[in-house]
């Protein structure tokens, strides 16, 4: 199929990276903890790429991305657990369900709130994120399985290197093709000038909604992979700070730059987890001093991200 032929360089590169990681994991060179972190990096990259579509490419400022990540995680875990389809065989279906649920919710709330611009949209998505967090906190009233503020426990572990890696690579290629198609072009037009976009016949409301729904779909899929990696979900995993994490990765990698998001995902997760290993236990909390300092430094020297030197 042309999709695979056109991407053969990327696919080849991905296979090499996969083989290297598989080897590293199988030989037992790295600890299980490191393995989990590496898998987590791919999940974070996928979710951040979703935000990059929404914010980096289309210019829609969202502070609620983690809510969709959470919706995907809870949906997929709930489905797997209640239907008893807790096997790797049905895993693709539950992942897809997580993504679709996030997309559906994005569609329903996107219609009213995407009329807002810039910081107003930021506040609306922030509000939505808090709403979802409160919903998760009280979810045990709907179904005991969801666990509410005690957390959702006993999810079967299905996410491994293969699922996380290949789902992410496939969806990154899909995203790349969308970005280089007429849809990605319209998203970039809208980011630059909505009025001019409408004047050349672009249905701006529809294209903005499409970017939002697609970006949230990616977050939902990432959430589903996350749920079945850590096997435990807590509402605090999906709060405002997690949304900020994704935002940092998008800005760090450069707005509207997929390769940048990939590097930034590695750097960001590597940095946070690296500090956890590097710092002695008694000053571990100093991480939350170093991280903001890093961000301040970044904004001063590289305000357009690590990858781009100037505005681009």
């Amino acid at each position: 199929m042309r999709f695979f032929l056109e991407s053969k360089r990327h696919i080849l590169l991905a296979l090499v990276i996969y083989a290297a990681l598989r080897l590293l994991f199988s030989l037992g060179i790295v600890s299980e903890y490191i393995e989990q972190v590496v898998i987590y990096v791919f999940i974070v990259i996928l979710a951040a790429t979703g935000l990059n579509v929404i914010y980096g490419y289309t210019g829609q400022f969202s502070l609620g991305h983690a809510a969709f990540y959470g919706i995907g995680a809870y949906t997929s875990a709930y489905l797997a657990k209640t239907s008893g389809l807790e096997s790797i065989f049905f895993f693709p279906a539950t992942i897809l369900a997580g993504g679709l649920m996030a997309a559906l919710v994005a569609y329903v709330i996107g219609i009213p709130i995407l009329r807002l611009r810039d910081d107003f949209l930021g506040i609306a998505t922030l509000g939505f994120g808090i709403l979802v967090r409160v919903f998760f906190d009280n979810s045990d009233r709907i179904s005991e399985v969801l666990g509410g503020s005690r957390g959702f426990t006993g999810i079967v572990k299905l996410t491994n290197l293969e699922t996380a890696f290949f789902v992410t690579v496939f969806l990154l290629l899909v995203t790349r093709n969308l970005i280089t198609s007429r849809y990605g072009l319209f998203w970039r037009c809208i980011k630059e000038d909505e009025t001019a976009s409408a004047s050349i016949g672009i249905n701006t409301a529809r294209m903005k909604l499409m970017a939002f729904v697609y970006g949230c779909f990616l977050a939902g899929v990432a959430g589903a992979l996350y749920a079945h990696l850590y096997t435990f979900l807590h509402p605090s995993n999906f709060d405002f700070l997690r949304s900020i994490d994704f935002l940092i990765i998008v800005i760090l990698g450069g707005m509207g730059n997929i390769a940048g998001t990939i590097y930034a995902g590695f750097i960001w997760v590597g940095f946070i987890e690296g500090l956890r290993i590097a710092l002695p236990g008694n000053i571990l909390d100093l991480r939350w001093v170093f991280i903001p300092l890093l961000l301040i430094a970044l904004m001063m020297w590289r305000p357009y991200g690590l990858m781009t030197k100037k505005k681009g």
Partner: peptide
């Protein structure tokens, strides 16, 4: 920030469609 050519193709493509599926695959 878009190229000169992209400024023009975007206008043409708004009225000449293909589906997201066609774009992806």
């Amino acid at each position: 920030e878009l190229t000169v050519a992209e400024n023009i193709t975007s206008a043409y493509l708004s009225g000449n469609r293909y589906s997201p599926f066609a774009g992806i695959f």
